[in-house]
Simulated scan of single mutants.
Amino acid sequence: MILFTDHRTICATCGTQYPSDVALPELCPICDDERQYIGDNGQTWTSLATLAKDRAIRFSQVSDRLYDLRITPAFAIGQRAFLILSESGNVLWDCLPFLDEPTIAFIRSLGGLKAIAISHPHYYSLMAEWARVFECPVYIHQSDAVWVQNHTSAIAFWSGERKSLWDGMEIINTGGHFPGSCVLLQPDSSGQTNLLTGDTIYVARSRRLVTFMYSYPNLIPLPKKAIEQIRDRMAGVSFDRIYGAFEGMVIAENGRSVFDASVQRYLSIFE
Results as ranks from 00 to 15, higher is better:
54 D>K: 10
81 A>N: 00
64 D>F: 06
256 R>A: 06
58 R>G: 01
33 D>I: 13
95 C>Y: 02
46 T>D: 03
39 G>A: 09
30 I>N: 02
269 I>A: 10
15 G>I: 09
261 A>D: 12
267 L>T: 00
258 V>F: 03
227 I>H: 04
158 W>N: 05
251 I>L: 07
112 G>Y: 10
60 S>D: 13
100 D>K: 11
206 S>F: 08
18 Y>I: 12
70 R>T: 09
251 I>G: 01
191 G>A: 05
153 S>T: 12
240 D>Q: 04
72 T>E: 15
182 C>G: 00
108 R>V: 03
96 L>I: 03
193 T>V: 15
12 A>M: 11
155 I>C: 13
44 T>G: 02
221 P>W: 09
216 Y>A: 04
215 S>H: 07
159 S>K: 12
131 A>H: 10
88 S>G: 08
123 Y>W: 12
218 N>I: 04
151 H>V: 12
66 L>S: 01
49 A>M: 14
159 S>H: 13
257 S>V: 01
160 G>Y: 09
74 A>R: 14
165 L>V: 00
175 G>E: 13
44 T>H: 03
270 F>I: 10
146 V>D: 04
246 F>E: 04
112 G>M: 08
254 N>Y: 06
81 A>W: 01
57 I>K: 08
240 D>K: 02
99 L>V: 11
225 K>F: 14
163 K>Q: 14
47 S>D: 08
108 R>S: 09
38 I>N: 01
242 I>V: 14
120 H>L: 14
45 W>Y: 06
15 G>W: 09
178 F>D: 07
76 A>V: 07
143 S>L: 15
257 S>M: 12
122 H>C: 14
60 S>N: 15
214 Y>P: 00
166 W>K: 04
165 L>P: 02
87 E>M: 06
76 A>G: 08
212 F>I: 07
206 S>V: 08
188 D>K: 12
141 H>L: 07
9 T>M: 11
5 T>I: 05
86 S>K: 01
59 F>H: 00
50 T>F: 12
188 D>M: 13
41 N>R: 11
67 Y>W: 14
14 C>V: 02
205 R>S: 15
167 D>A: 08
110 L>N: 07
211 T>R: 10
38 I>D: 01
142 Q>H: 07
20 S>H: 13
124 Y>W: 05
123 Y>C: 06
55 R>Y: 03
191 G>N: 05
9 T>A: 07
192 Q>G: 07
71 I>H: 10
47 S>N: 07
92 L>Y: 09
205 R>L: 15
28 C>H: 00
150 N>R: 11
60 S>E: 15
222 L>Q: 03
167 D>Q: 08
191 G>F: 12
24 L>Q: 00
239 F>M: 02
51 L>F: 04
250 V>W: 09
126 L>R: 01
34 E>N: 13
29 P>V: 00
84 I>Y: 00
109 S>F: 06
39 G>W: 03
137 P>R: 03
229 Q>Y: 09
80 R>G: 00
30 I>S: 01
244 G>A: 09
186 Q>C: 11
62 V>G: 00
28 C>Y: 01
97 P>V: 00
16 T>I: 15
255 G>W: 06
69 L>Q: 04
10 I>L: 02
61 Q>M: 10
259 F>N: 03
64 D>W: 06
54 D>L: 09
13 T>D: 09
241 R>L: 09
105 A>K: 15
160 G>H: 11
82 F>R: 00
27 L>V: 12
24 L>I: 02
215 S>T: 05
151 H>E: 13
